[in-house]
Design a binder for these strands. Sequence first.
DNA 1: TATTAATAATTAGCATGCTAACAGTTTGCA
DNA 2: TGCAAACTGTTAGCATGCTAATTATTAATA
Lengths: 143, 143
Amino acid sequence: MDNSFHYQLMLVHALFRARVMEHLADAGLSPGQPKILDYLRRHDGSMQKEIAYACQIEPATMTGLLRRMEEKGLLTRQIRPENRRTCYISLTARGREKCKRVEQTFLALEESVFTGISAQERTQFQNTLTKICANMTDIRGLQ
Amino acid sequence: MDNSFHYQLMLVHALFRARVMEHLADAGLSPGQPKILDYLRRHDGSMQKEIAYACQIEPATMTGLLRRMEEKGLLTRQIRPENRRTCYISLTARGREKCKRVEQTFLALEESVFTGISAQERTQFQNTLTKICANMTDIRGLQ
DNA sequence: TATTAATAATTAGCATGCTAACAGTTTGCA
DNA sequence: TGCAAACTGTTAGCATGCTAATTATTAATA
């Protein structure tokens, strides 16, 4: 068993993603969609590039992702006359319904993930994770 | 800023992956290859399905990944007469060279990631992460 | 022994991720 | 004003991820 950070990060990410999709099996969502819905639940009406930055996904990847979600009736893409470059993304009623499912899924899985871990240990873990997030955003071409 | 586990997990994974590829920019490796090399460094001669399980990648995904790595001369895929279903994967000399680069990259990035985090806090973090890995492997279709 | 079941890898088809190159729009400045 | 630069999103082409179905081999069992 390898306890290195990079290996465990890869593992937890793959396992969590799989658990999310199991939990959402009957929701008719593909793997890239829950995170977008989760972001829009908190930031409805965002610009396309804001979602891309917040989720660390390339703008080119967002195009297809949002196109499929628009085709499914989960959201709308809107261009306003003030700035015809920018695309604003809003949830539809159907999209907001799916958001609830996604939120429940994330809440349920987060509880499962921390099973057998005390509140104090969990808080400490999440604090360190927040520091790591900040460190990762800073690192640029070390050495 | 969202401090939920699933959001930070997504973020750290995306950022770490990007940093790995920046660090390996001149190594001629594509994004899926470092983790395979890292596993083979520790488990040379594994069966194909062992790598898939250890890295939590579907066997069907491994096929193409290993084919491209074999074409690049990083490894060999060998079938033995004892069991003609099984495929054994071994690093070539060229593959072992790349492994060194990959190991250096992971070591350097892990240090950067824990910048400003004490040894005690880091140990605690990695212990909790190990517990989380175990929890995630256990969870199967909760609710 | 012959048939069935289980195992290991592959293929096909799709979604999602990337980079590089491009198009359209807006901004800034000569 | 007009041209260059910056900005936003898209397209094309590829790698990587999935599931479902298939092939080939081996094991199990009637």
